[in-house]
Write a protein that binds this DNA or RNA. Structure first.
Lengths: 333, 333
DNA sequence: GTGAAAGCGCTAACAC
DNA sequence: GTGTTAGCGCTTTCAC
C-alpha cells in the first residue's frame, strides 16, 4: 500500500494526498476530509524511508551517552512529553562511554536522515560537534558552550550546583568535603563534571577552605570508586563528606563508605547530583542536587522543533538547581 | 555526495559501487580496492533512507518496554556485542508501560524500514505480535511462547527461576515467603512475571506450603510497593521473606521493609530477580536470580541476523537461571 | 485548489 | 566481471 493506493481510493491525485500528510497549504477542507477518511479506512502509513529521500523523516535522533545513568530516563520522559503531540518519533542510539562510538552513532543518525538530533551527555570533540550541527539541527543537553552559534543547549547551572553542594555540607557542619569526579583519561571534554568541579572549588575558596579542596577522579565502576574512597578516607586529614559528581557515582560512594565500615551520615556525609529515583530509597536516602531534568529536556525538545522549523539563531537555556536534602547529609536529623 | 560521485571518482559504474557496499558477489578484487579507496578518500557514507527504499537499511529496531529497568542495559550490551562486528546499527524506541505506546513505536520502526526487530519485555497482544512478525524478522526477549513459529525468542527459564527463589529461601530457614508481582491491571499479557509466579507456586506446593502461597500485585512505583509490603507485613501470619518479581521491584521492597522498621535479613528476607548491578551495592546487598542477560541478548541478536539472512523456522532459546546469594537472605552470614 | 511529472540515492534485474 | 537502467514511495515544482 502506497500513497498511490490512497490517491486512487479517495479519487484525488498523489500530490493532494502528500499535502494532506504534511499539513501543507493549498488543500480544501473537503479534499482533506476525503483523503483522511481513506487513510483511516485503509490504515495507511507513509514510508519514512521514502519520505526521507525528499523531505523529512519525522524522526528525532537521540544520542544517549550512557544507558546506565539513572538520571537520563527523566530526560527521555521530557522529550516524549513534547513529541507526543507531534508526528515526530524519537529513536535512541547508545554511546558506550567513548567518543568514537558516539561519532559512529551520530553518523548513523545522520545517514538515516533524522530531522534533528538531541545529544545527552555527548563527548564529541568541539570541531565534530560544530560540523554535525551545521549539517542538521542539534540541541545538546549536558554540554556547556554558551557562545556556540551552530546549536542550542539546555542545561542546569552545573557550576552553581557544585557550589550548592559545598554550601549545604558546610551548613550541616561538615568541614572537609571532598569530591569524586569522573575519570576522564580516555574521554574527551566532559564539561558537566568539570563545571561541577569549578563550582566546588569556588565555594571552597569562598568559605576559606581552598587549601582543603580535593577532587579525586575515579573511573565508572564499583571497584575504582571503592579504591578512590578508601584512599581518601585513609589519607591524612580524611574528608568528613564526599560529593559524588553524579548520583550513579554517589550511590557507589555510599556502597564503598559502608563497606569500609563507616557510618553515613555520622562518620561521612554523602551527596550526589541529579536527584534521580534511587536517591529516595530508604537504603540510600541520598541528598542530591535537583536539576529538573524533565523540564530541561522539554525545553531542549521545544528548541529542536523550532530549529527544525527554521530558526537559525542559537538559544541556550539554563535552569537553576536546588538542593534536595535527605538523610545522607543530615547528622542531627 | 552520492553513490554516483564515488562511481565517477573511481571510474566505475554505480552498480559496481553498490556491490562493493553490500559485499555482493561479482566484483574483482582490483575493482573493490579502487572503490574502497575512493570511498575512504571521499569519506562517503551511503544514505540509509535511499537504501531502505530498495534493500536494507542495516538498522535493527529495538523496542524497550521500560527505560528504568536496571536489567535492560545488559541486554543492550549483548545486542551491541553481536552487532559491533557488522554493518547494522541498533536504534531504540521506548515503550512507556502501555501496549498502545508500544504499538505506535513498533509501527514507527516498521515504517522506517528496520531490517529486523528485537523486542524487550514487549506487551503487544498475541495477534499484533504475530502480524508484525509476519511483516519483518522479529525476536522477542522476555516473552514465552515456545510454539510460536512466526518469530524467535530468547529467555531464561522464568518458571524455574521462580522455583529457585522459593528453594533458596526455604534452605535459608525462611518459612513463609510471599511474592510481590507486577500489577497488570492496565497491561496486556506480561508473561515473564506470570511465569515466575507459576514457578513460585509450584515450588511452594512441592514444599508442602501451598496453603501459604501469597502473590500480591503492586503497581510500579515506591508508594504502591510500600503499601503492598505494609499490607503483607501487617496481615495475620505475615511473611518472613518477600520475593520482588524483578530487581527494580525488590529494591523498592527493601526500601519499604526498612522504612517500616524491619531488619533485613533478620526480620524479613528480600530477594529479587535479574541480578542487575544495584544488587551488589553494600546498602542493597540483594540476593537475586541471575539470568545471564547479556548472553541471552547475544543469542537473540544472532537469531535475528540469521532470520534476516533467510531462516524461516522458529528458534526458541532458553537459559537456565542460577541463584546469586547475598546478604539480604543470609541470616546466619 | 488540484494534478502531472521529475527526481531524491540507492538496489537489482538484466544486458553485455 | 562490469555497466545500463527501471523503479522503490514519496515531495515538490510547475502547469492548469
Amino acid at each position: 500500500m502506497t500513497i498511490r493506493t490512497v490517491a486512487e481510493h479517495s479519487g484525488v491525485s498523489v500530490a493532494a494526498v502528500s499535502k494532506v500528510l504534511r499539513n501543507a497549504y493549498g488543500v480544501s477542507a473537503a479534499l482533506r476530509a476525503k483523503v483522511e477518511a481513506s487513510i483511516a479506512e485503509l490504515n495507511y502509513r507513509p514510508s519514512a524511508a521514502a519520505r526521507g529521500m525528499r523531505g523529512q523523516t519525522y524522526t528525532i535522533g537521540v544520542l544517549m551517552a550512557d544507558i546506565r545513568n539513572p538520571f537520563f530516563p527523566q530526560l527521555i520522559d521530557g522529550i516524549d512529553d513534547v513529541l507526543a503531540g507531534t508526528q515526530y518519533v524519537p529513536l535512541i542510539g547508545i554511546g558506550r562511554g567513548s567518543a568514537s562510538v558516539e561519532s559512529t552513532i551520530v553518523n548513523a543518525l545522520i545517514d538515516r536522515q533524522m530531522d534533528g538530533l538531541i545529544m545527552i551527555g555527548q563527548r564529541l570533540d568541539a570541531a565534530e560537534l560544530e560540523a554535525v550541527a551545521r549539517a542538521t539541527p542539534v540541541v545538546v543537553i549536558g554540554h556547556h558552550e554558551p557562545t556556540a552559534t551552530a546549536y542550542d543547549s539546555a542545561n542546569n547551572d552545573d557550576r552553581r550546583g557544585g557550589a550548592l553542594v559545598v554550601e549545604h555540607l558546610l551548613a550541616q557542619g561538615y568541614q572537609r568535603p571532598a569530591m569524586i569526579t569522573l575519570g576522564r583519561a580516555n574521554l574527551g571534554r566532559v564539561d558537566v563534571s568539570q563545571e561541577r568541579e569549578l563550582g566546588y572549588k569556588a565555594a571552597m575558596r569562598a568559605a576559606g577552605l581552598a587549601h582543603y579542596s580535593r577532587i579525586a577522579p575515579a573511573d565508572d565502576g564499583l571497584d575504582d570508586v571503592t579504591a578512590t574512597v578508601r584512599a581518601l578516607l585513609e589519607s591524612p586529614e580524611p574528608p568528613d563528606a564526599i560529593f559524588g559528581w553524579a548520583d550513579y557515582y554517589a550511590l557507589e560512594v555510599l556502597s564503598a563508605v559502608r563497606s569500609l565500615g563507616r557510618r553515613v551520615p555520622e562518620d561521612v556525609g554523602v551527596i550526589g547530583y541529579d536527584n534521580s529515583p534511587p536517591c529516595a530509597f530508604t537504603q540510600n536516602n541520598l541528598t542530591s542536587i535537583d536539576q529538573a531534568g524533565r523540564e530541561v529536556a522539554r525545553e531542549a525538545t521545544r528548541m529542536l522543533l523550532s530549529r527544525i522549523g527554521g530558526r537559525t539563531t542559537a538559544e541556550h537555556y539554563v535552569k537553576l538547581p536546588v538542593v534536595s536534602a535527605r538523610g545522607s547529609t543530615l547528622r542531627d536529623g
